[in-house]
Design a protein around this nucleic acid. Structure first.
Lengths: 202, 202
DNA sequence: ACTCACCCATGACAGATGTCACGGGTGAGT
DNA sequence: ACTCACCCGTGACATCTGTCATGGGTGAGT
């Protein structure tokens, strides 16, 4: 019984390389391959894969968002997220999206193959080291607004510009930034941005 | 006549996937495969590949630095840089390192194959769109010291901290930062960091 | 009803940051 | 010799940031 696979990765070369790699396994068959997040669901509907391998960084639709939609629209298709970064926030969001497996790209290829097979048996597969770091990073202490302010600040905007963009007063923006800096125990706006980003709090 | 290839990429999965992909071609043979930049030269010496495929982001030694060393130590081995980002600065540094080809990972797989074959014929291969953007970004107007200050600032350090770390006075640090901000026509330290990074000026 | 967390805002203040003008030292190129 | 670019520094100034106290409004939970 062969496993029918859907591949989604925005990097053409990586995608076709993965395809070549997986086709080497006797029991795998790649039935569809897309380069954008918003093409995942359509492809899954028409090809009915058993497992979808999704990268997170994709144009159109985030891989995790795609996973969430897939969960509803094509529930028979299980999702394995395959991404470059094992960042804490990603894992958390992935779990919330109902993902069955989470594999980082610097794992050896046997890990991916075995993850796919185990997911097919109904198991949930996550790299233990990753799970630990996610637990360590914890839930995001940032409120919605604090996140908003931080993400706008990321582009290098001044307080005044953030205020205009979010229809807030400058004082309010400063307050949110201050709160965010305190919660990340940073010294700076920049520092806060860095650590919040690292822990997947954005 | 088969082309002997050396693969270097820190992501296990991508590396073995690329290996599978390239082995599909009749005239390619992967003779070595490493995951760290500082293993490239040793592997090249012992396996004598015709072409080395190097990723840029690697632990130990930068892919471009590895290319430069290779140029001297194993001159018979041509280098093709294969990387995620087509950032302007990378291309420039690659050319300075004497690289023969530059391919981005979101190119289709035929591009990589043909690039390798063309490099074997002695040609230089660069994506035209990439070359154009590099030309547009231009040379870095930043002086060495301005770069230093910026890179330290990246970690979210304050002026005082940067000063201590670089053994400078605070005033000098402020001056350099100010100059860097002006040269990138940014509004901020953060903004300057962003744009300088984008253009490969760091 | 009451608490609590979050939203938004204002005002005030210390300290950090960015800008400017200025000066002195070095080495490379003309 | 002279220019020029870069290095490093100082001092002063305006502005931007980050912090704190304070207060009002909302909705969810007890």
């Amino acid at each position: 019984m062969t496993v029918r696979l859907l591949l989604a990765d925005d990097q053409e070369l990586v995608r076709s390389a993965l395809c070549a790699l997986l086709e080497l396994e006797e029991d795998f068959e790649v039935v569809a391959s897309v380069g954008r997040g918003d093409e995942v669901v359509d492809a899954a509907r028409s090809h009915q894969p058993d497992v979808a391998l999704l990268d997170i960084e994709m144009p159109g639709l985030d891989g995790l968002a795609a996973a969430a939609v897939l969960k509803v629209q094509v529930p028979a298709c299980r999702v394995v997220v395959l991404t470059t970064f094992g960042r804490a926030g990603y894992l958390r969001r992935a779990m919330e999206a109902g993902v069955a497996g989470f594999v980082v790209k610097d794992a050896p290829s046997e890990v991916l193959a075995s993850a796919i097979r185990r997911v097919m048996r109904g198991e949930r597969v996550v790299d233990p080291a990753l799970a630990a770091s996610t637990l360590a990073a914890g839930e995001s202490p940032l409120t919605a607004r604090e996140r908003d302010v931080l993400t706008v600040a990321r582009s290098g905007a001044t307080v005044a510009e953030i205020a205009t963009k979010l229809y807030l007063s400058e004082g309010t923006v400063r307050n949110y930034l201050s709160a965010a800096i305190a919660k990340t125990s940073a010294r700076n706006r920049l520092d806060a941005l860095r650590t919040a980003d690292e822990r997947g709090w954005l």
